[in-house]
Design a protein around this nucleic acid. Structure first.
Lengths: 351, 351
DNA sequence: CTGAAAGCGCTTACAG
DNA sequence: CTGAAAGCGCTTACAG
């Protein structure tokens, strides 16, 4: 009726003490082998390794953390531009900070103008030399890259969050695959729109932002190849600004009678929603956007938006903290757990 | 340029010792207050509480775990029917077990016939009284419910995994909202299928499974209300069996010339794929299914499947372990982190 | 290259 | 109702 029940649970777990006794060495030497510190005779190391294998020893993580007792300090740099998604991210970083405290690690969050590479680079250079790790919403620019690499050269663990600098020496990027997100948007758009064709528009903040350019690229790729019946307009740049987006879309709607779809790559969804509703086109224009903010949720529920592509800010904040911590402690990372999903939300699977 | 940089990171963190000194009590008493154990004079407790607030004390989780030093044992009961999703889940439970060991907690995994309520109930009753917690892929049946409630009465923490028994006293359900998953499938189906209408079929294992019945219900609800141009056939029961599904779909395809969509609620996707391909209908019939197994992934990539609705087995395994551990230790749960998403995968956002 | 011993910050009997 | 002290399983100087 039941099978495969392991008996491990009923055995007492081996400690480092047990390993040391089994190998005939002291605790200190056993510890050296377990943590791969050098200065151990090869023969001794082999004896210890054998004991570890024989007893199936795995370290007690709580004891190790306590004994080490080194507090960790992380700096998180977020954009000072207050868009809804970044606000959510800041809230989640704060929540993560409270959890981290129990792990004897601390987060200092600060805000910098994202669109200004020099300011971001200066902020990175100006970081007090107390940090074990830094997480930043990056801007792909040579100055930023240099500042990241300088930190890494000083053995600070650096991760990029939401927006990457792939050529830098950051140890990890925590965010979605942006070209894939663009392709996903295109697939949804192409299938949601009427078969007879029409015109589609794409709105970005500026093509100078790597993630926006990448999403646009992925979108174009799929739409042009798989939905040739759709005509794609030159990209519109709204600077993530709702007011500007509203103006752009109002003009777009009056200039393009056969408009069937809008893909908003960046922020400022309120402006687009307003323009669509004012023109009475909210129900017949397919609109795909990013980030499940309160506004986006409302738009999904009332049918103005058709799909929202999301990255979970809570997951990203926790992931950044776990990854920084793991790098500091030399602990393993669960790749599976840290992979940031390209989430698709319709009205029906809203959390 | 930067602002809002907290100074917490530069302060030394307060220990229980500090709290005790500040309140003028012993460590033991401070501990009693922190952990809400009783037998402390109200005035003393107030003094300690004041010290905690003043110093901003939060417990060092590692030290607490170590001092407590109580190993935890969990039993995980999975279906013995070896479908691809359940195999993935078993792999993830095993991976989680390795992580848990470092937390001084251990998982015993065993397998029971899911479709047999009495066998499942007997397995629950037959569990050795060594377990602090139990996670099971449940079957919503009075015998199972009674067996769960008996465990809870013996103060065992019980969680349901993937499939729930909502009326039982289990402390948590780790899985997706199944009616919402069905509604999501319907929205995708309705929008992917040609506007002119046609016939849609739904395949389940059996309507006696709560999750299948719920998904079917959600699907019907949205499809009938929002896509009245689509005709829905009576549900087909394939017992999660690929061979049976293949036969059902072969017959379906020949009997229903205007078939435009299939929603497979359960397992056995290979059978459906085979029938669609053999009939040369793979590209024009919209097919929505569940669980991103290797087969499902292949079907998405080659265009046989149009969307896969997924629950992440790795997330579920880790979540079950974290939730059981938290309940054992009286620790808080991060609801946000434990929420199991209804994931939508298209070819483009495959991980 | 190796070991004895102190110590990390809690919890837990035990005594009073 | 309160406290002194041992102990959890590691890591870390320090001595040799």
């Amino acid at each position: 009726m039941t099978r495969g029940q392991h008996q491990t649970a009923l055995r007492q777990r081996a400690t480092l003490e047990d390993v040391a006794r089994e190998a005939g060495v002291s605790l200190a030497t056993a510890d050296r082998v377990v943590n791969r510190r050098d200065g151990v005779h090869a023969k001794t190391a082999a004896r210890v390794a054998h004991a570890i294998a024989k007893l199936g020893y795995t370290a007690n993580a709580a004891a190790a953390r306590l004994a080490r007792n080194r507090p960790r300090r992380f700096a998180f740099l977020l954009p000072s531009t207050p868009n809804a998604f970044m606000t959510q991210l800041a809230v989640q970083v704060a929540a993560t900070a409270r959890w981290l405290e129990g792990q004897n690690a601390f987060i200092d969050m600060s805000h910098v103008d994202v669109f200004d590479a020099e300011a971001l680079a200066a902020a990175l250079r100006g970081l007090q030399p107390v940090y074990d790790g830094v997480a930043l919403v990056a801007l792909d620019h040579p100055s930023v890259r240099a500042a990241i690499d300088d930190l890494v050269a000083r053995s600070v663990h650096v991760v990029t969050l939401v927006s990457d600098v792939p050529t830098s020496r950051r140890v990890h990027y925590i965010g979605i695959d942006n070209p894939a997100a663009g392709r996903t948007a295109a697939s949804l758009m192409g299938r949601f729109v009427p078969r007879r064709g029409g015109t589609v528009a794409v709105v970005v903040a500026t093509m100078a932002l790597r993630d926006h350019a990448e999403r646009h690229f992925g979108f174009m790729q799929v739409l042009s190849q798989e939905f040739p019946e759709l005509r794609i307009l030159p990209v519109l740049e709204g600077r993530d600004d709702a007011t500007r987006n509203r103006t752009l879309v109002r003009r777009l709607l009056s200039d393009t009678p056969d408009l069937v779809g809008i893909y908003n790559v960046g922020a400022g969804n309120e402006g687009i929603a307003a323009a669509l509703e004012t023109a009475g086109r909210a129900r017949d224009v397919v609109w795909v956007a990013h980030e499940l903010t309160p506004d986006a949720r409302r738009c999904l529920l009332n049918g103005v938006a058709d799909a929202i592509i999301n990255q979970d800010p809570g997951h990203e904040a926790r992931s950044a903290a776990r990854i920084l911590l793991a790098h500091c402690e030399g602990a393993p990372i669960l790749a599976d757990q840290e992979r940031i999903r390209i989430e698709i939300f319709l009205r029906d699977n809203l959390p």
